[in-house]
Every structure is written in C-alpha cells, then in structure tokens.
Simulated scan of single mutants.
Amino acid sequence: MWSDILNQWRRTSLKSFISLFLVGISLSVAIAACSGNGENAASTNNPAVSPVAANKQDVELTLVSFAVTKAAHDAIIPKFAQKWKQEHNQNVTFKQSYGGSGSQTRAVVDGLEADIVHLALALDVNRIEQAGLIQPGWEKEIPNNGTVSKSVAALITREGNPKNLKTWTDLAKDGVQVITADPKTSGIARWNFLAFWNAAIHSGGGEEKALDFVTNIYTKHVPLLSKDAREATDAFFKQGQGDALVNYENEVLLAEQKGEKVNYIIPDVNISIDNPVAVVDKNVDKHGTREVAQAFVEYLFSPEAQTEFAKVGFRPIDETASQTKELAAKYPKVKTLGSVVDYGGWDAVQKKFFEDGAIFDQIQAKKRR
C-alpha cells in the first residue's frame, strides 16, 4: 500500500528529522534576530534559510522532468496546489521543463535551478548529486528508494503488424527499420538498449550473443536516433518512418486515451523502467522552498497522485494496487521482467555501455564505417 511505503520512509527518516530539528532551533534564533527588519531583511541576510518561503503569500517551484511525464504532472500539480493552499494558505505555482532525461540532467548541472527533478533513471539523479546539488543518500530520504513512476518497454508496429513483429529478436529480421531515441541524450533510449540486451541474455546466448544482437539492431536496423522519446514518437507516427517504434508502455496508453489507434506488443521478456524523483538540495535552500518541495515529492507517492500516473499509462509502484481487476487488465503481467540491478546497477551499466568509448560508441563507430 502507498501508506505502508510512506510509513516505512517516515520511520527510517526519524534520525534525520531529529538532526534537522536541532538545526532548526538554531536557525529560528537567527531568523528571530532579523525579524525586526521584515521579510526582505531576512531573505537578504540569510538567503539559504529554507523557511523564508513560508513568509510569502506565493511560492514558486521549478520542476524539471523527462518528456513523457508531462501529462501526469499536468494533472497532479493542480491537486497539490489546492491541497497546499487549504493547509497552508499559500499559493504554489510551478515552472515546468520537459525534455530528454540526459539533456535535462545536463541543464540542471549547468545552472537550470530546479527545485525538484523527476528523471528517467537514477543515474541522472546521481550525476546531479556528483555536481554537488543533491546530498548523498537522496534515495533513502524518499519513499520507495526514490522510484515514483515505472513502466516497461513496448514494441509498436504499423497497423496490422505487416512485418509480424512479436519479440525483440524479430527486430533483427531483414528489412525491418526500428525507431528509437539516442542513449546519449535520452533516458528511455538507455532503457531500450537494456531491453534489447536483457532479451538476448534471457535467450541463453550469453554476453557475446547479446553484443552481436544489439550491434546488429543499431547498425543495420536503426535509421536514425532521435533526441528523446517524444521525437521518436513523432518520427514514427507523424513522419511515417520505420516499421517499429520502441517506447514506454505509458506513451502507448496515453496515445490510446487521446483516440489514436496504436498497434503494440508488450514482449514477455522485458525490463522494469524505474523513474526516480528527488529534491535538489542546493536550490531549495537557495530559494527557500525546501518545505513545499519536500511536500510535493511526498505527495507524488500518495494514492491521489499515483492514480493520475496510472491514468496516463505508468504502472503502479504499489504491487497490491496492480492486482485490482481494472489495473490488471490495463497492465498485463510480464513473464520475465529484468531490472537494472541484474546488471550491476546504473553506475555499472553506464560505464559498460554508455560512457564515451564504451559499447554503444563502439557500435556507432561500426555503423559509420
């Protein structure tokens, strides 16, 4: 249950709360000493103090996320803002930025002052941590180890599936063109690559066969690499490129909700696509928005917010919820579901496959020959 996730997180965070409470006492004394000069004096003399926002009628948060979460956040944000207004008599507005997860990560590292990031993979949050913007151990300060939305990879075909594509290995058939995003700029593209690799491993061929398979796919069957998942979708549907598109299951379900007819398969061998959320510590302290930013992150794990994620195609993070009749019909169980943990976690996966000069670059070099 979502409540169990939150309760467990609160218990594990008790020590952190006590430490923060003691720090808060000291900060309260400092703020009280400045209160005679009014709100502007407090903000000027100690701009890093988080409670500054509590003295304002309006507070603004900047949310930076990967492209395919926009529909969910568009539904969730008004609900949170209404709840916060009722409980704190304070108006909350959001600046929102969406794009490829890798590009969004670089933007935050380069100076986009996000208060909250919701990204396609934990590796991207770790990069922001390494830049000194997020405190180490961020995933332990958030319910469910930071994973707030999840999906699986879908194989989308042309109407009637004329190439008879049913599994990942079918993508290697002669004449099949596959549309996917670039792992260098898109989080989903890394998941797609890992879905291919995972499928080859589970076929029993080992790493040598897996390397041959993904090399074949990217050198002979991928005509272009789009910047992010949304561009890949546009290339397939709007521009008519390719015989198959690899994308998040949630993108397919969202398209269906908009009245589009989509032919797709959820392969029996798949990868669990886990998307983390985190508060950007340095920025919320600078903006004085920590309290409301943390409240928003916690709200994303609530039944209300998770219902909105489920409406637009994200699989419930609560496994018991996915057992309901409605959700079981919408999200068919995957027979063999792999995880990034199976391959050593994102640090190991990044180093092996996606760092400069690693396996993906080696594959691309072969394609250019």
Rank of each mutant, 00 (worst) to 15 (best):
E298H: 11
A120L: 11
L254S: 09
K163A: 14
R11N: 08
K15S: 15
N164A: 14
K56Y: 05
G338W: 00
W9Y: 14
F94E: 11
D74W: 04
A278Q: 06
D318A: 13
Q104H: 08
Q239G: 05
V280L: 13
A195N: 02
Q8P: 00
L224C: 07
D318L: 13
D356R: 09
Y264M: 01
L27G: 05
T307C: 06
W2V: 04
A181M: 08
T44D: 10
K83V: 01
E326G: 03
W197G: 01
A75R: 12
A235N: 07
C34G: 09
A131R: 06
L171P: 05
S103K: 09
F353T: 00
F196C: 12
E207R: 12
Q104I: 11
A131V: 04
V312N: 00
G357F: 03
A71D: 13
T69F: 14
K335T: 14
T157H: 07
Q306Y: 07
K220C: 04
L327W: 02
A53T: 01
F237S: 11
N46V: 10
K79N: 05
P162L: 00
T93G: 06
L300K: 01
A358N: 09
Q8Y: 04
A181G: 15
V280M: 05
K286S: 13
T12H: 14
E207P: 09
W197E: 00
Y218H: 12
S226M: 13
G345A: 10
T233N: 13
A295P: 05
A131K: 05
K238R: 14
G24I: 02
F301E: 08
F296K: 01
S97A: 05
F80T: 07
D356Q: 15
G357E: 11
G205W: 02
A329N: 13
E60L: 05
H287V: 02
Q241V: 08
K150T: 15
P267C: 10
N270R: 04
E231W: 00
A67N: 10
K366Y: 10
P276C: 09
W84C: 00
A41Q: 07
T62S: 14
A200P: 11
T62R: 08
D361G: 07
R290S: 02
A120E: 13
L119K: 06
E298V: 12
E355L: 04
F17D: 15
S43R: 12
S16Q: 13
Y343F: 15
A30R: 11
S3L: 09
D243R: 02
I363L: 10
E139C: 02
M1I: 11
W168E: 13
L14S: 09
S101E: 10
N283Y: 04
T289Y: 01
D274V: 07
L6V: 15
I128F: 10
G187D: 01
S272G: 07
D285G: 06
W138L: 13
N283S: 06
I217K: 03
N192E: 14
